[in-house]
Amino acid sequence: MSVAHCGDFRQSYKDDMKVLETRFVRVSVGAFLVLLYVFPLFMSNYATSTMTTIGIAVIGALGINIVTGFTGQISLGQGAFMGVGAFACSYFMRILHMPFWIAMPAAGLTTAAVGMVFGLPSARLKGLYLAIATLAAQFILQYLFIHMEAVTGGSNGIPSPPPEIGSFAFDGDRSKYYLTITIAVLAVLFTTNLVRSRDGRAFIAVRDHYLSAEIMGIHLFKYRLLSFAVSAFYAGVAGSLWGMYTGYISAEHFTIAESINYLAMIIIGGLGSVLGSIFGAIFMTLLPQALTVGTGALAQTFPKIGFLIMSFKDGVFGLIVILFLIFEPDGLAHRWRQIKAYWKLFPFSY
């Protein structure tokens, strides 16, 4: 049983279409999925709920990777788009009495529409200029979160009712986890297939050389807008799940810091890589938690300088991210590919 192919052995179109090429990879991915689903049975509620936030982050990161990593349009509004999704979902459920299963996709579509509106500047703007335009989206939406009190509850926030099937409500840590992780797995599957479809190739073409893409007949504006819409749809779904996870949503969570956090995820994980979005989401969710635990323990051991250690936390966080970018400038996904390439012809490296 070969772990990975050491060359190109594809003989049919069917072989060519496979996502998981060898039996070893299929078995290990299957085992990983099984592990994901039995995980909460053995772990604490705290670990389960951390995993839920990772799942939400994975969906959000996949979204921003589609617009920024694959299509090359820097977006600084992912946090606000998540807010749109969360508030929309809550509104649909509370006021329009939709069940969550309809409200969540509807919130996704609403967010996609909002994302398209703020993607309009991409018709004329490129690179950093577009980033500044999307930054405006962030602030306009944040303003609306505070002032559209009927929908968002203003600065007080608003409750987000839990999803229900019949009489069963998803309000425990485990049930929230299962719902989130299922949607995250579906999102990963969909994105993996999206980026190797006709439209996915068009996204990448627009990123790599927009003039050549245009020559091929790709409508640039259409695909830029589409990427904003798809990305915002993911953000809307992630936002709905976030509302379900916390049970109460307020505008405070969906700030520019959150948007930058998502951008950091895909930069650390790997731009233009599905696997990178997952790695980045895990890294950026776990690192602050690990630091909290670490500094907390240190502060207990050295109570006199405890406050000092605690105040170093954010600094250490920044330092680790910077060191990471210095040593892994192409992201975790790139390192992962390197490791795989290295083992391909083991014991020879080339």
């Binding site: 390197q338 390439a341 290295y342 391909k344 490296s349 080339y350």
Partner: peptide, 9 residues
């Protein structure tokens, strides 16, 4: 010359 530690050129 080796690129990316794996490609011998």
């Amino acid at each position: 010359v080796v690129y990316s530690d794996v490609i011998l050129v």
